[in-house]
Each structure stands twice: as C-alpha cells, then as structure tokens.
C-alpha cells in the first residue's frame, strides 16, 4: 500500500464489517439523502494471489466472491456539496467480500456520505469508528486467546 489515505481506511472498515453491525449502525443515522445506483450491486470473483516462499513472485491461490456497487448522491441537496466535487455529485464505491448486495450498497452509500462535508462527521462517528472499535476488540480477543497457547520448548541435554 502506497499511502494509507483516510478513504482507504474507511472503505476497508466498511468492507470487513459484518452486515448486521453495518446495517444497525447505518440505521442510527436516520434518513439518508437520496441516492441512485451508478452501478447496481453485482457479484463476481477476485483471484487471490500469493507469493512463492512468502516473498517471491506471485502465483494464483484461489478465488473469492466479491460484490461491488457504485452509488451516486442525488445533487438536489441544499448542502452545497457540489463545491468540492467540481460540480458533479458524489459517487461512493462498495467492494465487499461475499455475495451480499445489501452489504455492498451500504458500503457504497457510506463511502459517498463520508466524502460529503455535512455527512462526514456523523457517519465517521456513528458507523466507522464503532466498526473499527468492534473489529479491534475481536482481534484483541483472538490475540489474547492465542497468547495463552504460547509455547516454550526445552531441548534435553542427554550428557547430563
């Protein structure tokens, strides 16, 4: 990854979240501004590549399912969002593993709202930060459980 832009971070968070968690947090935002699909959700495949010996040349490992979707916020908002976007309305992209149209749509609309000057704060606070904390907690639990299995083997010296 060249540089971790904030947008890459929130897109990753939205993609990795469970649909249930994402849905319930987005619901807390109340009524969303109108949007339409530039590209309706569609399911396809990603070929996952690995590297030989972990660090060498790439090779194909296997595929995974992916759902993608692009939404566009309708421009008839009275929020002045067109200023930053050079006159065009904001487009939001969703790329999520699995086959959930809804997940891709929610990820896309959140991505669009997060580029919007008025919506950024509520979406970041209510949705993204919550999901990040949740993911961090789950990671932490796994780390703690794995740590309990940390092993120190001793080799026996037969001469003694």
């Amino acid at each position: 990854m060249t540089s971790i832009k904030p947008r890459q971070l929130w897109m990753a968070t939205l993609a990795k979240a469970s649909l249930e968690a994402l849905e319930s947090r987005v619901a807390m935002l109340g009524e969303l501004p109108p949007y339409r699909f530039l590209r309706p959700p569609e399911i396809g495949l990603v070929m996952v590549q690995g590297r030989m010996d972990g660090s060498g040349e790439p090779f194909c490992v296997g595929e995974m399912t992916l759902t993608r979707c692009v939404v566009k916020l309708e421009a008839d908002l009275d929020t002045g969002l067109d200023v930053d976007e050079g006159g065009g309305a904001i487009a939001g992209f969703g790329y999520v593993s699995g086959r959930s149209h809804r997940h891709a749509e929610l990820a896309a609309i959140c991505d669009a709202l997060l580029q919007h000057p008025v919506w950024y704060d509520p979406v970041q606070e209510t949705v993204v930060e919550f999901l990040q904390t949740l993911a961090q907690q789950q990671k932490e639990i796994q780390q703690r459980q794995v740590e309990a299995t940390k092993v120190n083997f001793f080799t026996l010296d037969r001469k003694q």
Partner: peptide, 29 residues
C-alpha cells in the same frame, strides 16, 4: 464459480502481516 465473472486479481498477499492464530517452527525454539 464458473457462473460468475472475474472482476479483479488481488494484490499478492502479504503473509508477513498476518493476524496469527497459530505459529510454530520446528527448527528454532
């Protein structure tokens, strides 16, 4: 899988950056 279109190739996985749930070595303790 044959019914689905291929959208992308992933970037090669960076296995150095795994969230490990198990990690052992039989050559160094």
């Amino acid at each position: 899988r044959t019914t689905l279109p291929r959208f992308y190739n992933s970037q090669p996985l960076d296995t150095q950056q795994m969230n490990l749930q198990r990690r052992i070595s039989a050559i160094f303790k």
